[in-house]
């Protein structure tokens, strides 16, 4: 990705403030995450990086009672234009099927490999088996996992290694063909080898997906991120990559 072309914005935050039970976490974040780029968000822990990701798929609203409070606008390029995702007419389910998320530690559900990957598709109402099989296979290939698991699709997903589990979670996030993928330190619990595989597969997804990745490792950020932003005191400041 060439930096001087200035690709169109995919996600746009304007003066986003978030406080959790009165404690400010985000103090006016204004930023743009361009289409088909991997934007890395770095910074010391406890600065609200995960919270930032959760404002993009509104996952913070799942906590009940909702203690968080958000102000400002978050717009994402969906349905052919930038839309304010906090508008009432947008359904949470609709949003999260387009803005997927991978968590810090691998979290396969206690079911088979196949069922894990097929899960979001099943929730979305897909009933045709052959269609499901095609999509599962495609997603597993995208996650560089197909060759390793094609003979044991119906084994418990928790038998896989840590790195495989995380790739399974990525396949699960990709199966609905999301336009934005949020990654919350996806390799922090993995060894170097597993880490490299995941970096390689993420780099492959850039054509179809815009990624926002929280990371601790500057090495990793240098390797795959197109743009780097630093989170400090609840604000997001741009830094040039490399």
């Amino acid at each position: 990705m060439k930096m001087n072309e200035a690709p169109a914005p995919k996600v746009e935050l304007r003066n986003v403030r978030f406080d959790y039970g009165g404690a400010p976490i985000l103090n006016g974040v204004t930023a743009v995450f361009p289409t088909h780029c991997i934007t890395a968000v770095v910074g010391p822990s406890g600065q609200g990086k995960t919270t930032l990701l959760m404002t993009l798929n509104r996952l913070w609203q799942e906590e009940r009672p909702t203690v968080g409070r958000l102000a400002g606008t978050v717009r994402i390029h969906l349905n052919g234009g930038l839309v304010d995702i906090y508008e009432d007419r947008y359904d949470l389910t609709w949003l999260r099927r387009r803005v997927a998320m991978v968590f810090q530690s691998p979290n396969p559900l206690p079911m088979s490999i196949y069922k894990n990957v097929a899960f979001p598709l099943k929730l979305a109402g897909e009933k045709r088996d052959h269609r499901m099989e095609e999509r599962v296979q495609a997603a597993l290939r995208q996650a560089f996992l197909w060759d390793e698991v094609k003979d044991r699709l119906h084994k418990d997903a928790r038998e896989l290694s840590g790195g495989q589990q995380q790739r399974l979670c990525i396949a699960r996030a990709l199966i609905l063909k999301p336009e934005v993928l949020l990654l919350d330190e996806p390799t922090s619990s993995l060894d170097l080898r597993a880490c490299e595989v995941i970096e390689a597969l993420l780099a492959h997804q850039k054509e179809s997906c815009t990624m926002v990745m929280v990371s601790h490792y500057l090495e990793q950020v240098r390797r795959i991120a197109d743009r780097v932003m630093v989170m400090e005191n609840g604000r997001l400041l741009p830094r040039d990559a490399a």
């Binding site: 799942e62 389910t93 999260r96 929730l123």
Partner: peptide, 22 residues
């Protein structure tokens, strides 16, 4: 725990789907 609770919604599960499937 919260991390398990969030998997379903992050994959586009409605609250009811999350309750019954996870």
């Amino acid at each position: 725990p919260a991390d398990l609770r969030l998997i379903g919604p992050s994959l586009g599960a409605t609250r009811f789907q999350n309750i019954f499937h996870v």
